[in-house]
Simulated assay, not measured.
Amino acid sequence: MKITPVIGLLVLFFSLAGCATDRGLAPDLNGDQISVTIKVPEELIAEEMQVMYRSKLCTFTDYTASGVPYLRDGYKRTDIQPVRMGQTDLYEANLAVDGGGACQWRLSNVTFGVMYKDPAQFGDGVVYGAGGGIIVMFDENNPGRAGVYKKVEGDLILKKDYYPWVHERFIGGHKKSVNLTGDGHIYVRYQALMARSVYFEPVLHSGFVARSVGPKVKSEGHRTIYYYPDGSSSPERQIQPSFRKLQAIRLAAEAQE
């Protein structure tokens, strides 16, 4: 039977459409890698890392706020648990830059951090909340979480102070949580285009606990009250304790020792 050019093109079209691209990751473990190392304090544990890859081959259609369609790079996430290095307090993961596969995935960013091992040490019913998170961007793509970022040349070495913060919430349901509060919000973001090594050392000041109690009704004049380790307290609009005040309280106490 003779196949006309039009029928031939239709056959070719449906053959290609029916043969979906395998979008799986196939990282090159012998290729270029970025090491991420976390020095974990005794009371904390390393969270699972969220590693994002992007592809310019496997795109998808997204829409602007006005409904105009446009193509975006494809993205795919994989989660990696950092591994303890011997009997040390260092935990490490190696991230393949080349994600491989038919989509030719490339490493885009990694989200990682630390959290409390035992939130119940702060009281019955206390759960872990948030904080202690880091996002490192290895390309020009926005990782999807709001916030500004710092640009870093070369490898990234971070040493950051954190304080325990116990918050009691009433609006939306009663809940007590312990958080890690530091210089920034839940996630602190960095862009390190040339990095091949990332080192994160969170310094936990366990003896300086901040506490807060949220309002019981949502109305003007009702604010969260923050209680600081020096005995002071104040109602404030901010969503976390003042890092500068906590630093000042700790440094003053250490100076008197």
Results as ranks from 00 to 15, higher is better:
V198R: 00
P164F: 01
G101P: 07
L156Q: 04
P82N: 08
K159W: 05
I134R: 03
I157M: 13
V166W: 05
G123D: 06
Y116W: 14
G154Q: 02
E140D: 14
D98F: 01
G144E: 15
G113Q: 13
R106M: 10
K159C: 09
Y199V: 14
N142P: 13
A130L: 13
D183Y: 06
V152H: 01
Q104C: 06
D161L: 02
G173V: 03
F138M: 13
E153A: 04
Y187R: 06
M85T: 06
D98T: 00
L156E: 13
R169M: 13
Y128M: 06
G113M: 12
T88G: 06
A130F: 12
I171P: 08
H174I: 00
L158R: 03
E153F: 01
V148L: 14
I80F: 11
Y163D: 13
V127C: 01
C103G: 02
Q104P: 04
H185K: 12
P143F: 01
E201S: 10
K117N: 08
T111V: 15
G101L: 10
C103H: 02
Q121Y: 01
I171C: 07
A195H: 01
S177D: 13
A130H: 08
P119M: 06
G182C: 11
E168M: 07
N94T: 09
V152W: 00
K175R: 12
T111Q: 15
I80P: 08
A120Q: 03
A102S: 09
V126D: 05
Y187P: 05
N109E: 15
H167S: 13
G100R: 00
T181Q: 09
F122S: 01
D139A: 03
P164E: 10
M115F: 04
A120V: 00
L107V: 02
A195L: 10
A195P: 07
N94G: 06
V110Y: 09
A96V: 05
I80S: 08
P164L: 02
G131F: 05
I134A: 11
D139I: 02
R196H: 09
C103N: 02
L107S: 03
R169Q: 14
L158G: 12
R189E: 14
H185Q: 14
L90H: 11
R189I: 03
M137H: 02
Q104Y: 10
Q104M: 04
V166I: 09
Y190T: 03
R189T: 01
T88L: 07
Q104F: 09
R169E: 15
S108A: 12
F200L: 11
K117S: 11
K117W: 03
Y91R: 04
D183F: 07
C103F: 05
L107P: 08
A195T: 05
Q191M: 11
L158A: 12
D89H: 03
G154W: 03
M137C: 11
I80C: 12
R145Q: 15
T88R: 00
K160C: 05
A146S: 15
K160R: 12
G113I: 08
G123A: 02
I135M: 14
V166G: 07
V97A: 08
G100K: 00
Y190P: 07
A195V: 06
M115L: 06
Y190H: 08
V126A: 03
G131L: 09
V166P: 06
R196F: 02
A130C: 09
K150G: 05
G100N: 07
F170H: 13
K159G: 13
W165S: 11
V83L: 10
F200W: 14
T181H: 04
H167F: 10
V198D: 10
G86I: 02
